[in-house]
Amino acid sequence: MSYLLKRIGFYLLTVWAAVTINFFVPRMIPGDPVQALITKQRGQMTSEAVRSLYVLFGLDKDESLASQYFSYLGQLLRGDLGMSFTFFPSPVADVIGDGLPWTVGLVGITTVIGFFLGTAAGAVVGWRRGTWADSLIPVTTFVSSIPYFWLGLVAIALLTGPGSFFPASGAYEIGLVPNWDWQFIGSTVQHGLLPGFTILISSVSGWILSMRNMMVTVSSDDYVTVAHAKGLPERRVMLAYAARNALLPNVSGFALALGFIVGGTLLVEIVFSYPGLGLQLFQAVGAKDYPLLQGIFLIITLSVLLANLLADVAYLALDPRTRREG
């Protein structure tokens, strides 16, 4: 249990670090972006909204840095991430609330599937070293070097178009109202397939490579030789002895790599115009919508930390050495 508490403490530290980065970064922005927005909206903004934006950007020149910092923290704790410039007058929190479920659905599901598929394939490839399976390595190396979004572009060019089953953009058919009926769910799945496969193909190859290397390393550990000496069936040796141990570093690798993977997968949303956080990030960069950018950064960081925590729990369940038993 103390292991988990330590991890949670570390994640809280990370959240604090991310919030602090978010506090200081906007101070580099030249000029007064809020004034520009006020001018553009011609007085449609409430004084409360203006005030919250000033806190966000640290433009409160009358206050000390410390008090600016604390009013910023206080604002975040109330869930106020400011006002979006592009989706004016929607608050950033609402905009992100619209995008988050799509990203969690697409990126979350495909990342987890990719991890399991890649780990399973990597275990087989590593175990069958010296056979045809080795020829998969150069292919996966090549695929894992391709940026996710470019693979998406190729997929769109090859597989979509008039008469194709795969839609080239969006998360569901235009005109449908999001609800839980079969037509909508079917349309969602249909739209999610191609972006999903794109992420899957890119992320799977990385896991194949790392799991293969772990299998090769673990296979020459003594307990695997002992398992062979015991005359156990090949499957048993491979699964319960080699793969079971090779899985551990792969799970901790999963937690560490999440930050990288999420960055890559967000780009796939842009290519497919998939209405998640990635597409919003793209729009925010184009429109210099700083509050939205910062909000997205915070939410992505929080999601990654949450996923990390889940991976920690999985690790705890998988490795008896991290458990303290009485």
Binding site: D221, D222, Y223, T225, V226, A227, H228, A229, K230, G231, L232, P233, A240, Y241, R244, N245, L248, L318, D319, P320, R321
Partner: peptide
């Protein structure tokens, strides 16, 4: 595989590494 352990068993050098650490 059938002969192994039922006819010839081995005690390896260094038991720390001979046992599967996760089972």
């Amino acid at each position: 595989r059938r002969l192994r352990w039922s006819e010839i068993a081995i005690v390896f050098q260094g038991a720390i590494n001979s046992l599967n650490p996760v089972q």
